[in-house]
Amino acid sequence: MEISGSAFNSGLNAIQAGQRRVDQAATEIASNTLPQAPVETPPAQQVNPSPSGAANTQADLAESLVALNVGKTEVQAGAKVVETADEVLGTLIDTRA
């Protein structure tokens, strides 16, 4: 019985960790894609005016999308662990009954 409980806990922990990852990635994606008010910087204070800021934002967005997919896969794997533990427990109960 302890093995099954451990499997349920592992599956639940994976689901919760995946959900946290999805939530964080979704927040990062939303903050990167929402229009923001432009900040005017005087030319004298510009260190290196280049389009690298847009590339940096695209890299951040790509990383967030990857994290979103990793979280989704983590939730699916955790759900499969819980499902399998449920099937094993059902088999054990059928065997003992």
Rank of each mutant, 00 (worst) to 15 (best):
V82A: 12
S4G: 09
Q24V: 11
A85P: 02
A14V: 00
F8D: 03
G90F: 03
G11K: 06
V88I: 14
P51K: 03
A85S: 10
Q58T: 03
A59K: 12
D86V: 01
V39C: 05
Q46K: 10
A97Q: 11
R20T: 09
P43R: 05
G53F: 09
D23T: 10
T33L: 15
A7P: 00
G78I: 04
T33C: 08
N9R: 14
T95I: 13
G18K: 03
A85E: 06
A77I: 05
Q46W: 02
P49N: 09
A26V: 06
G71L: 07
A62M: 15
L34F: 01
A79Q: 15
N9Y: 02
G71R: 02
G71P: 03
A97H: 05
P51N: 08
T95S: 07
A97S: 09
D86T: 10
S10K: 10
P35C: 06
I29Y: 04
I15C: 12
N32D: 13
A17V: 01
G90D: 13
A55F: 04
D94S: 09
A30N: 10
A44D: 12
S52K: 14
K80M: 12
L65H: 07
A79D: 14
V22H: 01
A62F: 14
G71I: 03
V39T: 12
A7C: 11
P43L: 08
G71C: 04
A14C: 04
Q45M: 13
T84Y: 09
N69K: 13
V82P: 06
E87Y: 02
A54L: 12
A25D: 09
Q16P: 00
V39A: 14
L92G: 01
P49R: 11
E87C: 03
